[in-house]
């Protein structure tokens, strides 16, 4: 009995973190888009950046339960940071500049995390929003450096690793974004399945008990907030690098609010929500923008209202059911070649 239970526990814990066939299929398809949709690089690239941005929010909202309307602060800071270092030739190599921008955003995340620790949902909302609005004001104030309302212009991004130039069709730009997204995803996935990630879910579920079993709640939240800020920063830097432009609207409330929508569409707390949400959101945006380009915001609002009234849990239930069905299907497909091979022997 003892050893059976022990085996079961060990097997369960291992299985928990294993890549499922569906996940592998997801990423195979994601990379296949490079060859499947050669004319759509721009929207694909935007989707990848949005997905990374949403992933960063999922870490704090879905896993740690912090409601934030200020994720744009990190996105924007890193966006300007990467634009400025390229413009003034401080860091010419885009990859290095990207990492530096992410670190800058993470540093801001670390500092502001202490502001977010205390207080209710509303206070957190206000403080996160306030921070991003403040940064927007600062960027506006120092328009001689940031270009103010006209945006940061004259950014010249060098080829990645000295070899891959950002071409006109956006091919290299998209591949670059997709690879960064994938690496960040693997990292986030690792974090979520670690003891640290589990402790975050515990803190979200019941902070009182979390402290009572010895979890330093405060430091866990600081850590995840910093990490999330870093990822958001990478997303912002990618946007600047691939468009060679950065404007004040990176700090806007709309950006943070849209991000919430993206994450809600895809569902929180299982990492893929941000990615799937980004894809759906971009498709939706593309479709509606073709119908009524100016009043796109109205439909976004309608989607939000309907989602809430229909019940988020119910929608997540459907998504989970769809996921289960897909998982079964891919498992069957994955099993078939093996069976085929064994039959032939």
């Amino acid at each position: 009995m003892t050893s059976a239970a022990a085996n079961e526990v060990a097997a369960y814990l291992k299985r928990r973190a294993r890549w499922s066939p569906l996940e592998i299929a997801f990423w195979v398809f994601a990379f296949a888009t490079i060859w499947l949709f050669p004319g759509k690089y721009l929207i694909l690239k935007d989707t990848a950046i949005l997905a990374l941005f949403a992933l960063s929010l999922d870490l704090i909202l879905g896993y740690a339960g912090i409601i934030s309307l200020g994720q744009a602060a990190f996105f924007g800071l890193a966006g300007y940071f990467s634009g400025l270092v390229a413009k003034y030739g401080i860091i010419n190599e885009p990859l290095l500049a990207l990492i530096a921008s992410g670190l800058a955003a993470a540093a801001l995340g670390f500092v502001t995390s202490f502001l977010v620790l205390r207080g209710s949902d509303l206070t957190r909302l206000m403080v996160t929003l306030g921070v991003s609005l403040m940064l927007g004001e600062v960027a506006n104030r120092y328009s001689n450096i940031t270009g103010g309302a006209d945006g940061l212009q004259g950014v010249d991004i060098q080829p990645i690793l000295g070899r891959f130039r950002f071409d006109l069709y956006g091919h290299n730009g998209y591949v670059y974004c997709l690879i960064v997204l994938f690496i960040c995803f693997v990292l986030a996935r690792r974090v979520v399945y670690s003891p640290f990630g589990l402790s975050l879910r515990a803190v979200k579920g019941n902070p009182l008990r979390a402290a009572a079993i010895g979890i330093p709640v405060k430091w866990r939240l600081v850590a995840v907030y910093t990490f999330s800020a870093g990822l958001a920063g990478l997303a912002g830097a990618l946007l600047t690098q691939t468009t060679a432009f950065c404007s004040l609207d990176v700090f806007s409330l709309d950006r943070s609010a849209d991000l919430l929508l993206v994450l809600i569409i895809g569902g929180t707390g299982y990492l893929y929500g941000g990615l799937i949400g980004a894809v759906i959101y971009k498709l939706l945006q593309d479709w509606i923008a073709n119908l009524t380009p100016q009043y796109w915001q109205f439909w976004i609002g309608l989607v939000l209202v309907v989602i809430v009234l229909a019940g988020r849990e119910r929608m997540q239930g459907w998504i989970a059911a769809a996921r289960g069905a897909l998982e079964d299907a891919t498992a069957r497909v994955a099993a078939r070649p093996a069976k085929f091979a064994s039959d032939r022997q």
């Binding site: 919430l260 809600i264 309608l302 989607v303 939000l304 209202v305 809430v308």
Partner: peptide, 12 residues
Amino acid sequence: LFTIGLVFMAVA
């Protein structure tokens, strides 16, 4: 989410 949605709709 709900009230931000309302704001967006009102604005548009």
